[in-house]
Amino acid sequence: MSEPKPKQDEPIKRMLAPVRLEFTVSAGRDKTAFLGAIIEGRILGGRCPSCRKVYVPPRGCPTCGVEMVGDIPISDHGVVTTFCTVSIPFEGQTMKLPYVYASIVLDGADVPIFHLVDGIDAKDARMGLRVRADWRPPAERKPTMESIRAFVPTGEPDAAFDTYKEHL
């Protein structure tokens, strides 16, 4: 963007006022443990001591308002409960369009995570699709969910609607 230069006698309609702020964000206690495991190619969940539900990543239980210990190993296989095919470009986007962005309930978890679904044509994406994590090689992994490149179809038969409808 360049500074608009109005002609003489023309009202000034726009001005450029760039703001640049840098933030250093702490992952926090729960995410530190979770992302540490991600680097090792493992997914950690936590069980709420009150309602017994399993959360990925672990966190304070949203419904009970109590802390949980994040020490439950979770499978890197799961089911696509619902999804969206993105065909709109936006600032900061790194994926090639169109891409499929899905809500995935990992086996053993009670809440979905959100990630890319790849290895399938966008038009073949569907609810109930069984997927698994496609991990980046250990040397390329960082403390971010991008250490999983995407989720890809396992080739198993689709899950029945009734088995995941409570996650919608």
Binding site: S26, A27, G28, R29, D30, G65
Partner: peptide, 15 residues
Amino acid sequence: RNELDETEMLLPVIT
């Protein structure tokens, strides 16, 4: 200054 995130700071205080 602490390494907890906002929710982790807040939850015990509310409790």
